[in-house]
């Protein structure tokens, strides 16, 4: 019941926004538009898996390097794919491993050196950006092969390959969270590390693994992003960092750690994406767009907080 309570505000918000969208923008509910919104939500959703894991691990957890990691894999990994599905899977594996490696570096800083996650991941993000520039000499991957671009192909309208993969990953993550030992260890570590230690959980290991997972998913997202865009630019992933934090918050995850749901974060991502799409469709000045977006974000978060307080 508690988990359902987490859903409701964000589901409610998405429904309200979609209705508003249809009223303001004719053609909003068209199949093509919906499938595009779902794809963008899927991308952000994969990012929220990463961010949610980091935040749930507690200790003021957050991962501000996810955008940089995604940019890195987006500009580097497409080189590995030319035309076979085998190469595609290999590229995803490499992307994930790059992300995990960076995540492990974050873990070392956070667990061993006791650097606050905010600062460690922030600076790690800058290091990754610098490394990306260094490795590519400013020129990202040459061509995004058609097979990578096919992530945008429809399976059953309005669901495209990217959307389906994103949903599958979110569902798997959710199952892992609630059914596996690691998932439960993660939640307990985030909620009450002292109690977790008494239970015999190695909180350092669990906390460290959280950032490795976060990095891994960010890496995967980057490659999907490259396929979605069909072209690569150097800072493709950077805007997704703070967006993923906002989506996780809208999804009801406690920023202090220990409570959260991946599916709920996906709904949070949906809310953000619908909001952004509606604002894009409006024929107003960019400045007005930003003001409206900020105000609505505050509104959504206040409603979120208020509804959680009522439940507890």
């Amino acid at each position: 019941m508690d988990r359902l309570a987490m859903f409701l505000p964000s589901v409610g918000a998405s429904i309200v926004l979609i209705v508003i969208g249809q009223l303001i923008v004719p053609g909003f509910m068209s199949i093509n538009n919906i499938s595009s919104i779902l794809m963008t939500t899927g991308l952000l959703g994969i990012m929220t898996i990463a961010q949610n894991t980091a935040i749930m691990s507690g200790n003021n957890g957050i991962d501000l390097s996810v955008g940089s990691v995604a940019s890195l894999t987006a500009v580097v990994c497409p080189l590995l794919v030319s035309d076979t599905v085998g190469e595609l899977l290999f590229a995803f594996l490499v992307a994930m491993l790059i992300g995990v490696a960076i995540g492990l570096m974050n873990s070392v800083g956070i667990q061993a050196f006791r650097i606050p996650p905010l600062i460690m991941t922030l600076i790690m993000g800058s290091v990754v950006d610098g490394a990306k520039l260094f490795v590519t000499k400013g020129s990202p991957a040459t061509r995004i092969s058609p097979i990578l671009q096919s992530v945008s192909d429809p399976v059953i309208q309005p669901f495209r390959i990217l959307t389906i993969f994103a949903v599958i990953m979110v569902v798997l993550a959710e199952l892992m969270l609630h059914r596996s030992r690691f998932g439960r260890a993660l939640l307990l570590t985030g909620d009450n590390p002292g109690a977790a230690a008494i239970c015999g959980i190695n909180t350092k290991l669990v906390g460290g693994a959280a950032y490795a997972i976060s990095g891994g998913f960010a890496g995967i997202m980057g490659l999907f992003l490259a396929g979605y865009a069909g072209a690569t630019t150097m800072s493709m992933g950077s805007s997704y960092t703070l967006l993923s934090v906002a989506a996780v918050a809208i999804g009801g995850t406690d920023l202090a750690g220990g409570k959260g749901s991946y599916v709920s974060c996906l709904v949070g991502a949906l809310v953000l994406t619908v909001l952004t799409t509606i604002l894009q469709a409006l024929n107003v000045q960019e400045g007005v767009r930003l003001i409206v977006k900020g105000l609505i974000l505050i509104l959504i978060m206040v409603v979120n907080i208020y509804s959680h307080r009522r439940k507890s």
């Binding site: 934090v245 003001i291 105000l295 978060m301």
Partner: peptide
Amino acid sequence: LTTFATQTV
């Protein structure tokens, strides 16, 4: 989150 939103505003 607050300051993220106000930054946008």
